[in-house]
Design a protein around this nucleic acid. Structure first.
Lengths: 213, 213
DNA sequence: TTTGAAATATGAGTAATCCTCACATTTGCA
DNA sequence: TGCAAATGTGAGGATTACTCATATTTCAAA
């Protein structure tokens, strides 16, 4: 760490490419690097992923890898960002127009299913969101992300229960959201049948909390 | 890995000392190693913990460390085991004699508080239970542990609701238990005030699920 | 007390791996 | 065409988990 300039944000600290690819050629190469990393993570997990392997599989030199990613975490994080951006859009659109209890019931149920399917289908997701736990900076980012997502839920609750204590609603939404993430992670780490049961049980539990205060 | 003998269990694979200390002298030294590791983990996290530092702080050579711990994970795991054994005993005794709803309400509430306090007071706990997530073998062990703990809860539920579907009760207990672990981990990673609110909200949510099916 | 085998202690050395950097090549534009 | 910026390269530096040949200590049987 030669340069002592403080990073502008945690985001920049862990996620920003060392240098953004501006040319078509390099953009394609960065894509290949990410694809290679994704495949290797799916196979063996991000911890076992070797930078040399990523470079080889992407058909680039190790130096090129570091041209665009400051370190190993940055690659993992770049992959994670794609999924979270996707999720966030999904969450926002699903909850935006909810105005009554039945609407919430439906939207929430769909949302959980989508998350569950996403984690089931993408081994990278699972690895990333457990792997990041070990890393303080990434854990904080994940928390911030989760908080942001929970706010969509808070907004709905405030609409449905205008009289209720806002802080209580925020707490409920945040907790329910985090429980959901935990439930899905749990569900994908047991066999499919039990996973389905757990997700269903979570839905019941969460909806009761959301609807009945 | 020269010896190809299959480990007797996952437990042994990650946790067993390379060699159990039999003499008083070595038992004391192992204690010092664990104390040193604990202090370093509390300071910087288990990932940043260096084996050389542990040895130096314990006043032993690096070789001695590896005399009793097959690898870095084993040290972390040895620390974790102490806490989990302690917890398990606590859980068992708290839930053993529950026979009615009010008893469950009280015992469960106390249990959650104890967990919360334990995580608040022991930075090592927090680190360990997030750090292990990155490791497949440890994650599975943690899951097995959690399942075992949840069984105490299942037993209570079966007693309170003899007519209910046993599989459903097991699912509920396991889910509620896992949610509790997630809630506590969440609570300690935000400020104290919000943490308290989250734990309280979790208690309400969990108890409703446990008592009203 | 003697003795020798098992237990324990040591730390320089090995291997694996992340990441750097000095230099080569390519691209796009004036 | 020329040139500066962007991009590409891979041998090598630095760190660190872990090994192993060897030295020392313990303890119980002779």
């Amino acid at each position: 760490m030669e340069d002592t300039a403080a990073p502008a944000s945690a985001q920049e600290q862990v996620a920003s490419p060392r240098r953004a690819p501006t040319q078509q050629r390099s953009r394609e190469r960065v894509e290949r690097m990410l694809a290679a990393a994704s495949a290797l993570i799916a196979q063996q997990g991000s911890d076992a992923m070797r930078m040399g392997e990523v470079a080889e599989r992407a058909g680039v030199s190790i130096g090129s890898l570091y041209q665009f990613f400051p370190d190993k975490r940055a690659i993992v994080w770049a992959l994670a960002e794609r999924y979270t951006a996707e999720s966030q859009a999904c969450i926002s659109s699903a909850l935006k127009d909810v105005t009554d209890a039945e609407g919430l019931r439906q939207a929430f149920s769909e949302l959980v299913d989508i998350y569950y399917q996403l984690f089931l289908a993408e081994p990278v997701m699972r690895d990333i969101w457990s792997g990041t736990q070990a890393d303080k900076a990434l854990r904080e980012l994940e928390l911030a992300d989760s908080r942001a997502n929970a706010e969509f839920l808070t907004a709905v609750l405030k609409r449905l229960q205008p009289g209720a204590d806002p802080v209580a609603l925020e707490t409920t939404a945040f907790l329910v959201w985090q429980m959901g993430e935990a439930a899905v992670r749990l569900a994908i780490s047991v066999d499919r049948q039990e996973g389905d049961r757990l997700v269903a049980a979570y839905k019941r539990m969460a909806l009761r909390e959301l609807l009945e205060g």
